[in-house]
Amino acid sequence: MTGTILQIDSVSRVFPGVRGGTPVRALEPTNLQVAENDFITILGPSGCGKSTLLRIVAGLDRPSGGRVLLNGREIKGPGADRGMVFQSYTLFPWLTIAENIAYGLREKGMPKSQRQDIVASYTEKVGLRGFENHYPKQLSGGMQQRTAIARALANDPAILLLDEPFGALDNQTRGLMQELLLGIWERERKTVLFVTHDIEEAIFLASRVVVMSARPGRIKADISVELPHPRHYTMKTTPEFSALKAQLTEEIRHEALEADVAH
């Protein structure tokens, strides 16, 4: 086991009330340690603060309390060391697919010839050969998200953050994308933090599933997934997989019930 790369240290977030209303406690003080090369999925019902937590790690939002350390250094704002893929399509519409993937490299001031090599290798990895000169609008949602993953990876971040990247895709495409992402991870072992509300997706991808509770959000369970790699979609029908699924379903159900009683 390698060292801790990301340390979330009693991070909380309270949003001020809208027009004098009561403040929203989106995230209770939360602790999480992420080991290098881990694939962690954060699973939780809608509105439990998953995006809030991920945005704080990305540096797009500030915690109300606590801090996040990346390789021992406190995160003060967004940076190229944390790549992010959003739930909405965020490719730059005025850039072609190749230019989108090269965006971060250009920001670093990398010379063009070097950029081209990296872009070519990532277009290949996400299966977008032949679409380099298309504009995002000309691509399907799945292809756009693949480009977004390539764009984040091309930057070679220390950690990859994904916020329900496949949430808007149909089931078939979603399954294919999961395999694609997992394939890349199995080869490159990049540290990944992946937010989802889909239990199957959470188990299939993860080496560790972190379950979050409903409002106010906090970590409720932390379950390691010992399924072997490389994983194939057929794994979703194995008894081990089903057992994990049953366990997580129970956790979440329990959660939802408790939240219900509390209100």
């Binding site: 704002g77 967004p78 940076g79 190229a80 959003f86 909405s88 965020t90």
Partner: peptide
């Protein structure tokens, strides 16, 4: 301007 595009640029290392 779409905020998410600006945020994406920041996470890609834009100043």
């Amino acid at each position: 301007t779409r905020r998410d595009l600006v945020e994406a640029a920041y996470t890609l290392g834009s100043s």
